[in-house]
Amino acid sequence: MRAATSNAGDGVIGAKDRPSNLTGASDPEVAQWAQHGHEPAFRELVRRYERPVFSLLYRMVRDRALAEDLAQETFIKVLNGIKSYNPQFKFSSWIFKIANNAAIDHLRKRDLDTLSLDGSPHATTPEEMSATALQLGDRGESPLQEVEARELGSAIERAIAKLRPEYRACILLRHVEGHSYEEIARILDLPLGTVKTYIHRGRNELRVYLEDRKA
């Protein structure tokens, strides 16, 4: 229904300035169109980033419905604050920063709520880790949980889930999303050296988890 209504921007932005090919435009171009109230530009930004942002959040919280809520929250914050976007920075860095903050905030609150439960993302001892692994694999009661178990059940996904959230975010941004170390430092508001340390430790832990399974 909304799509059928005429875009309010059309009357003001001259036809010569209107993006002829939104899908071929760069992120900063699309974001600038959004800053000027061009509704299709908003949709284009959501279309471009719904999967990357949702995937990051889903792997951070391992709960589809919750990841979707956090993804919505992220996009609403980004799009309602589009006027403050500075095109000198990568749009992807900006949106991942907000998404990651949403995930970390949630995980912190959840940890406070369920301090005594096993399956903590901060699992460090083998006992804690196996408790985490059990929790991740053996909860196929609802159809949604079955989907989650299928989607996130591979060895590599389970290994990622065992990383502490800070390492997990770094590894996903580096090796799944392909951000540079510098970009990740900006996204996570961490010193570059810390990002490198987290990524190296994260990779070491992943290798150990994956090799332990095979042994």
Partner: peptide, 14 residues
């Protein structure tokens, strides 16, 4: 998802 987001976004006045 796009529609659910767009339903909650304020498009700035052009």
């Amino acid at each position: 998802f796009v529609e659910r987001v767009m339903g909650r976004v304020r498009i700035p006045s052009p």
